[in-house]
Design a protein around this nucleic acid. Structure first.
Lengths: 207, 207
DNA sequence: TTGGAAATGGAATGTCCACTCCAAAATGTG
DNA sequence: CACATTTTGGAGTGGACATTCCATTTCCAA
């Protein structure tokens, strides 16, 4: 009886580096083309590894996809680390909006949100992947909520404004704006969606 | 030289009915599993037709997908026909929100938006499909905008409120809310997103 | 009614692709 | 150094799937 897990618990330094290259290559390809259009072969080519290496580090394609979800969660949160946890004023919210819209302009309005597109593709296909993604979004939401909560705690927001609901609505505006921006190849929907929710939050600021 | 198009310009009554069954079956399967996970064989089985029939009516799978996009556009607009074009007051907007949230509850928060998920899956894969979807969303957006425009024209909204931007933001809130609701299997994100944008519109109503 | 077009049946084809297998090289540890 | 473990190479396999082909039946207009 062999070890049931195809992945040994321990990797050498070299092994970890290889695994990392595979995840990075897969993340890039999946962001560009989606999971279904990304073949294991193309991942191996892009990472410069052989088939057996991919299956040495991952049980199957879905395991690799889940690793990509984790990687993209970190990437997304990292790309906003200057803002998340600190969105506690209208100017900071506006600066964050500009940052996000700027990123889309930089990408040519292509690709959408790495986590959002994965959610659409995987929500009905794998409950495990859906759970992973839900955790990632929960962290994101939390990074938005904490700033609003701080404003609320400081008494800067109406008492009946709910930071949880507002954070959820803000994340939804961002995701929906990205879907439409990707579809139209135009940053306007994203900008309009974020502007509206931030204007709304501003309207809840005590006079 | 034979006719280059595999689809004759004219169908018999029976032919149109068959084509319709194929599109309906494909739309249902694609809504449930996505384009990539829907095989031509499964569509034929579900529609009760043979392979050759599918290829008699459609050049290839992508042509069928584009027909599904058109079908789903009609379905989505139809499901809201009582509301679109008439969203010209806060109570009507709230009724529309309830209707949409109710549909999600009925679906068990599964599947998301038929057009939204197609957009995510196809935006980077086919410019033609992206164009079809953009047209569908434009019609949807228009159905939202016209009501807001009517409010604005009647002087019920602040002069500086822009019905175009608000309609775009509303559609984005809806799409983003659906992504999160589908991911979490929980209607709250959708409800929070729509509530926020409608509250925002309400805050723009003249006192 | 009849001829041509449309509709249908279903087997066949060829490609793509996830995953397996076995052997060899490299690595780290006692 | 020696041995176990990890890492790598790359060919091979079996199945899934989009699409094609050709024969047969049905439909409709003149």
């Amino acid at each position: 009886m062999v070890n049931a897990a195809p992945v040994p618990r321990t990797f050498t330094r070299k092994g970890s580096a290889t695994r990392d290259r595979i995840v990075a290559a897969a993340a890039a390809l999946i962001f560009k083309r989606g999971v279904a259009q990304t073949t294991t072969e193309s991942v191996c080519d892009a990472a410069g590894v052989s088939t057996s290496q991919l299956y040495h580090y991952f049980k199957d394609k879905m395991a690799l996809v889940r690793a990509v979800i984790d990687r993209q969660t970190e990437n997304v949160l990292d790309a906003q680390r200057e803002y998340l946890g600190r969105l506690d004023s209208i100017p900071r919210l506006r600066a964050w909006r500009d940052h996000i819209v700027g990123l889309q302009l930089f990408e040519g309005c292509k690709g959408g949100c790495p986590l959002g597109t994965l959610s659409s593709e995987l929500s009905e296909r794998s409950d495990e992947a859906r759970g992973d993604l839900a955790l990632g979004f929960a962290r994101w939401e939390d990074g938005i909520r904490s700033g609003l909560q701080a404003m609320h705690d400081r008494g800067e927001l109406c008492a009946n404004a709910d930071p949880h609901q507002l954070a959820l609505a803000t994340l939804a505006a961002l995701q929906g704006g990205l879907v439409l921006t990707q579809l139209r190849r135009d940053p306007e929907p994203l900008r309009a969606a974020l502007d509206a929710i931030i204007d709304h939050i501003e309207s809840l600021v005590r006079a």
